[in-house]
């Protein structure tokens, strides 16, 4: 992962910086696994892309999450934190996570709020993908 330059480092909150330096749950799951839901979202204004995947057990609990984000520090931190947040939650609980919870935890400035929205969309999109797969399997 590229190191942030000194100047941009100074602009990030320590919590963002921590997730950026040590991102949690980076990786890839098999998107063809029926228990895996894949959410892929992008930010048209800046060109960032984010993939969030969830593994759900038979009780509807998210037992694992993986993400991969190509974007700014705040986008990486938002998806890293989101992946931590949803682990252990039921899909219906995870669906209700709001971007404000992510933005608050990471102390995102207003210009970076859209990064937390991207993470919220990624969670929703992963859950939808999982549900769609389950419906198709019926």
């Amino acid at each position: 992962m590229l190191a942030l330059s000194q100047t941009s480092k100074a602009n990030y909150h320590p919590k963002v910086h921590d997730h950026y330096e040590k991102p949690r749950n980076v990786g890839l799951m098999d998107k063809n696994d029926p228990n895996v839901g894949t959410g892929l979202v992008g930010a048209p204004a800046c060109g960032d892309v984010m993939r969030l995947q969830i593994k759900v057990d038979d009780n509807g609990t998210i037992i694992d999450a993986k993400f991969k984000t190509f974007g700014c520090g705040s986008a990486i931190a938002s998806s890293s934190y989101a992946s931590e947040l949803i682990k252990g939650l039921g899909i219906d609980e995870a669906k209700n996570i709001k971007n404000t919870a992510i933005a608050k935890e990471l102390c995102l400035p207003p210009v970076k709020l859209h990064c937390s929205m991207l993470a919220e969309d990624a969670i929703k999109s992963a859950i939808e993908d999982y549900k769609r797969k389950k419906l198709l399997a019926l």
Binding site: L40, V41, P44, K68
Partner: peptide
């Protein structure tokens, strides 16, 4: 900033 969309296949290609 808050605009969404773009078709999924294209995002897969970009990723």
């Amino acid at each position: 900033e808050e605009d969404k969309a773009t078709d999924n296949d294209f995002l897969f290609l970009i990723m």
